[in-house]
Design a protein around this nucleic acid. Structure first.
Length: 418
RNA sequence: GUGGGUGUAGCUCAGCUCGGUAGAGCGCUGGAUUGUGGCUCCAGUGGUCGCGGGUUCAAAUCCCGUCACUCACCCCA
């Protein structure tokens, strides 16, 4: 028997209704905020991600599906959406359009990590990107879109918005020096990982889950106290605008970003439902990225939501209306040809109809009607044919009535149209 | 890449310590109800015990190896 490859999965059955529900929200809500869909290729030259994400990040260093093409190009399955989006933005010269350019994407991403709860090698992200404005009002609008999204998914009560400012290339280096200096003094008390982080990425220590490190990080200097004047003003404005839109948030000065391209505003939607992998959506500003990938110096901001994790959250809460088949068609005798005509007529009116092609006993067909959660069973046997009628049985109430062909559609409309 | 846990029926799992006929619940099929579902009762169907090797008269059970899944770390959505 063939098995799926590690970290990949099939999505079907009850779970797929959650996906369809979410997908509708993605398309409707994005449009409402003025974003148009952008379909990014799944495959890019590996260089796009090296440049865009940062060649020293874990994503690029050890998590990309990368291979050599027949013409010796190195290609990679996209591990995230932003780098490819920006490549397209530059390649198609979309920067030439005046004003803010807003796009959203939705699709699978690929990272070669060890799978665990809420983490797969193929996972789906919905993300938005807005280019061309450095206004903090845009930051707050993007964040509002994110919180609206979870609200429509009916799980906002399971999530908390955290925001932070991680400074800019002007003020962050100074802060990093201060931070490194601080941690150096208590280096011996840090865990092994954190001693390594001290050299590679000291800001990560703020994020460590080990109690002893937490205690040290607690008193560490925080970025928001070292912001340059512009960054500080920007952050204040974002917070004010969020409050004006009634968005509740928490400033988490220990929030960090793994990807090099982020500046200033960083935000996350986190849950405490999962043991690990508690971030369901995250984003931030990336003002230098467009230039980094060969375009003009246009600012940008965006977020990405992990749909697999979102579905995982929603499944523990009964938020999706169950799917009910309108009609299950029961044919006890050899009246298949006649029955199919009726079924076809009903489908063309827009109702959902199914039947059992094995045509077992009426009893077994009724059982199937029940299993499909049909609202009505239509029974069509010799008795009905003789009277040019169909029996309509209400599966909830249990009552039934004989309806002549000529009045069938009218009857269904009364019963099924809300 | 590192560490822990688990692989037995379609699904959830018991049995393994202390070797001796492979089990339960749910599901599925049929019947009680010959043209009527859900509830109940009855019967039936269903497994190379992950795979390979070893020990033994005898292995789901003990030993070795291997693969898979899973949770966690690193990191991330």
């Amino acid at each position: 028997m063939y098995k799926k490859v590690r970290g990949f999965r099939d999505i079907f059955g009850d779970e797929i209704y959650y996906w369809n529900f979410i997908e509708k929200i993605i398309y409707d809500l994005s449009r409402r905020y003025g974003y148009s869909e952008y379909k990014i290729p799944v495959l890019e030259k590996a260089e796009v991600f090296n440049r865009g994400i940062g060649s020293t990040t874990d994503i690029v260093e050890k998590e990309m599906f990368i291979f050599k093409d027949k013409n010796d190009d190195f290609l990679a399955l996209r591990p995230e959406g932003t780098a490819g989006m920006v490549r397209g933005f530059v390649e198609n010269k979309l920067y030439a359009i005046s004003g803010v350019k807003k796009y959203f994407y939705y699709g699978p991403m690929f990272r070669r990590e060890r799978p665990q709860k809420g983490r797969y090698r193929q996972f789906y992200q919905f993300g938005v990107e807005a280019f061309g404005s450095a206004s903090p009002v845009l930051d707050s609008e993007v964040i509002k879109l994110l919180t609206d999204f979870f609200k429509e998914c009916k799980i906002e009560d399971k999530l908390k918005l955290e925001i932070n400012s991680i400074g800019c290339p002007e003020c962050r280096p100074l802060y990093k020096d201060k931070l490194t200096e601080y941690f150096e003094t208590s280096k011996d008390e840090l865990c092994e990982d954190c001693r390594r982080r001290l050299n590679t990425n000291p800001m990560r220590i703020l994020d460590c889950k080990i109690e002893s490190c937490k205690a040290i990080a607690e008193k560490a200097p925080v970025m928001i106290n070292y912001l340059c004047r512009e960054c500080a003003q920007h952050f204040e404005s974002v917070k004010t605008n969020l409050s004006n839109m009634n968005v509740s948030f928490e400033v988490n000065p220990h929030m960090v970003r793994g990807l090099d391209y982020y500046v200033r505003t960083a935000f996350e939607m986190v849950t405490d439902e999962f043991e690990a992998n508690s971030t369901v959506g995250a984003g931030g500003r990336y003002d230098g990225l467009v230039k980094q990938l060969g375009g003009p110096d246009q600012p940008g901001i965006g977020f990405a939501v992990g749909i697999d994790r979102l579905v995982g959250l929603m499944e523990s809460k009964d938020v999706i209306p169950q799917y009910h088949l309108d009609i299950f068609f029961v044919l006890p005798d050899g009246l298949l040809d006649e029955g199919v005509k009726i079924i076809n007529n009903i489908r063309e009116k827009g109702y959902s109809v199914d039947m059992d092609f094995d045509l077992g006993s009426v009893k077994s067909q009724m059982k199937k009607a029940n299993r499909f959660k049909a609202k009505f069973a239509l029974i069509f046997g010799q008795n009905e044919l003789d009277k040019k009628s169909v029996t309509i049985k209400d599966m909830d109430k249990g009552n039934q009535e004989l309806v002549p062909f000529s009045r069938l559609m009218e009857k269904l409309s009364i019963k099924l149209d809300k």
